[in-house]
Computed example of a mutant assay.
Amino acid sequence: QFPFGYRTYMAVIIASLLSAAVTEELTHIGPPLFIEVSYVPVWSYLLLAVLGIVLGALGVSFNWALIAVMDLFQKIPSGLRWLPALAIGGITGALLNALPEATGGGENLVHDLINKQFGVIALLLLTLLRFGGVLFSYASGVPGGIFAPMLSIATCAGLAFGVASVEFLPLDNDFRAACAVAAMGGFFAASVRAPLVGVVLVMELTGGYALIMPVLITCTTAALTAHQLGGRPIYEQLLERTLRLAGEKPDKEPDKTPVQLGTRES
């Protein structure tokens, strides 16, 4: 267990600041997902709170679906577990030609999604495709993880919300980018259940420090919505699933005291 205390917190903060400063000094590279954003009107904070509620529900659904698909794939006979990977590869190849934005990842993808003028329907379709792609890729063991794909899902969902808002309300087109940035933090907060980490993470990734209040509102409402819906942190659920498959019973309340060698059988 991580020893939560003043010294450890200060050590983590100092190490994070120094690593960021040294990296930027050596590489002269700023935020990896730098997005130019402008100030958004205060009255639009209500819209961002609504976006947080939507992302809270999406995050809980993502966590539940990921565990469910993993359990489903676990039932496939060991000799046939190459079939899902084969199907995912074929579908990804088709999408790469028909709709490239539904595949791949990285900072270029986020920038392309924001810069291109996609409509609401197209963005919702991209959200659905990327949502399903993460579930089946991760469950089948195909490399890709869940963190970076979560950012792409959030970008698509946030842009869809932003485009709809710009179409029906007196908002500048830059509000789309603001929603995309806020959605990254909100979806992370809903799935991982770490709203403050989501705020800091998004600020560091995008450099959108002007949006710290909108992002904070979105992350808070997303985390509260996920809590009210009974959602639990995704990494905690993955750990419990790993222990369940290993035949162990996870502790509900982790022991904070150190366990000395020889006091517990392995």
Rank of each mutant, 00 (worst) to 15 (best):
A102I: 06
I88S: 01
G52S: 07
V54C: 10
L126Y: 05
N97Y: 15
E101I: 03
H111S: 10
L46M: 11
W43M: 02
L18T: 11
G93W: 12
I76D: 01
L96S: 13
A87M: 13
L83P: 01
G105F: 14
L126V: 01
P143T: 12
I91Y: 09
L95F: 13
T92R: 14
G132M: 03
A68L: 09
E24W: 14
S19M: 11
I91F: 15
E36N: 08
S140G: 06
G106N: 08
A57S: 14
S78V: 04
E36Y: 07
A68N: 10
G141P: 07
N108M: 13
L135H: 04
P100W: 09
S44W: 02
T127G: 12
F136H: 05
F131D: 00
L113R: 06
V40F: 05
G30W: 01
G144Y: 07
D71G: 10
V142Y: 11
N115A: 07
M70R: 15
L58K: 06
T23S: 06
T92S: 13
A102P: 05
N63R: 15
S19N: 05
P77A: 09
G132C: 07
V60S: 03
V120G: 00
S44F: 10
S19C: 13
S38T: 12
G104P: 10
F131W: 13
L99F: 08
V22A: 07
L48P: 06
L126D: 00
L47P: 03
P32Q: 11
W64V: 04
S78Y: 12
Q117V: 02
R130S: 05
S19R: 05
L17F: 14
Q74M: 04
I114G: 00
V37D: 01
L72V: 10
V22F: 14
V22L: 12
L113Y: 03
A94R: 08
V110C: 06
E25F: 15
L55Q: 09
N63A: 15
G30T: 05
G106F: 10
G132I: 00
G56A: 04
V37I: 06
A65V: 07
L48K: 12
A57Q: 09
F62H: 07
W82R: 04
E36H: 08
L124N: 01
S78I: 07
S78D: 09
L96P: 00
Y39M: 08
F73D: 01
G79H: 14
V60W: 08
W43D: 01
T23I: 03
I91A: 15
L46P: 00
A49Q: 11
G56H: 11
E107K: 11
S16W: 09
A85S: 15
S61W: 09
I29L: 13
G30I: 00
Y45K: 07
L55S: 03
F136I: 12
L95P: 00
E24R: 14
G59D: 04
E107A: 15
L135P: 01
V134S: 05
G119C: 08
S19W: 12
Y138L: 04
G52V: 07
S78H: 15
